[in-house]
């Protein structure tokens, strides 16, 4: 009876929903505490204390912020396109969440272990620009529109190099399945043979998530706060949380493509006792720390420098490295499925 229910259509639906819940709840708590971690890490790097009033060590701060945001008034500017104005933050946040459907946190532990997982991730991350553009246009404000234009150009440019970096990972694996990509790294993590690609991917990830030093779409010193100047209350909070969810997603992608996903760093006894999801979590946290570290360290890029870096440095470099990788695999006979 039970087995029959779980293999029926409805049963599969229920199981999928439960799995999604099991992934979403830790993810959302992670997003909340990433905002806290960012403030603490920045504070520590600037010799301050950071949030320390609400709860022990300020641990309830994210919830206090969320409640504050919920009780504020949502102001919709005059002349704004109402529906799109409210829809834009949902796109940003929703896209950051649905990408997690294919991310494996352990061997065959993904909500959907699909054959084209890598392309799915790339497709979802290429949609991220819409939340920003629509927000900028729907606000009916010059500053918001300027921010949206900047971010459209920026995200499209850096997607090109991300695509080429992903291709060079793909050439090494011979599969678009994320599970296979991690399993292919059991001997050596791709961060070592593909080190330049790893660095380029991480920097492009910073640009793709609009984080410092590439946070030009925000650019509070020139265009106030860029695409979300007009947003308030919960719609602002959704943009804010979307940015952090995107950071976690980017870190997850970096972990899967280059840092061996759930695999332990050394395949020996004390390390292999630690379960896979813990390793995955630790690696994601390491990447996130670098995100915060970069924000505390580097000043913002100028717009022409950003474009120059994307098109004149990263694009040729990643294209070149793709050819080198493919040639090396061919010469040494390491091509998968050869």
């Amino acid at each position: 009876m039970e087995a029959g229910f779980f293999s029926s259509d409805l049963g599969i639906l229920v199981i999928t929903l439960l799995r999604a819940l099991a992934l979403l709840v830790p993810l959302l708590i992670g997003v909340a505490y990433l905002t806290y971690a960012e403030r603490k890490v920045l504070a520590a790097m600037q010799l301050r204390k950071g949030p320390n009033v609400v709860g022990p060590f300020g641990l309830w701060q994210p919830f206090a912020d969320a409640i504050k945001m919920l009780f504020k008034e949502t102001v919709i500017p005059d002349g704004a396109s109402r529906l799109l104005f409210l829809f834009a933050p949902m796109i940003t946040f929703g896209l950051a969440i649905i990408a997690w459907a294919v991310i494996p946190v352990n061997n065959h532990w993904a909500i959907a272990n699909i054959n084209v997982g890598l392309l799915y991730l790339f497709a979802i991350s290429s949609l991220g620009v819409y939340g920003v553009i629509i927000a900028g246009w729907a606000s009916n404000s010059k500053f918001a529109f300027l921010g949206a234009m900047r971010s459209a150009a920026q995200m499209v440019s850096y997607e090109v190099s991300i695509g080429l970096v992903i291709l060079s990972v793909l050439v090494c694996v011979g599969s678009l399945n994320l599970n296979d990509i991690v399993v292919a790294q059991r001997h050596i993590w791709f961060a070592i043979p593909l080190l330049p690609m790893f660095v380029i991917f991480f920097i492009s990830g910073l640009a793709e998530t609009n984080r410092a030093p590439f946070d030009l779409p925000e650019g509070e010193s020139e265009i106030v706060a860029g695409f979300f100047v007009e947003y308030s209350a919960m719609s602002f909070a959704l943009f804010f949380l979307g940015e952090y969810a995107n950071m976690i997603l980017m870190s997850g992608m970096t972990t899967i493509f280059f840092l061996g996903g759930w695999l332990s760093p050394i395949p020996l006894a004390p390390f292999t006792w630690v379960p896979g999801p813990i390793w995955f979590l630790l690696k994601v946290m390491l990447c996130l720390f670098v995100f915060l570290w970069v924000r505390a360290t580097l000043p913002r890029f100028r717009y022409d420098q950003l474009m120059q870096l994307g098109w004149k440095v990263f694009l040729p470099l990643s294209l070149c490295w793709l050819v080198i990788t493919a040639s090396a695999l061919e010469i040494f006979g390491w091509l998968p499925h050869a």
């Binding site: 497709a123 290429s126 949609l127 620009v129 819409y130 553009i133 459209a152 499209v156 997607e159």
Partner: peptide, 18 residues
């Protein structure tokens, strides 16, 4: 399906919208 989303939605339509 994925290529349709990546190429048309992710790149062509963005420029179009722009």
């Amino acid at each position: 399906a994925m290529v349709l989303v990546i190429v048309y939605v992710g790149a062509v339509a963005v420029l179009f919208l722009f």
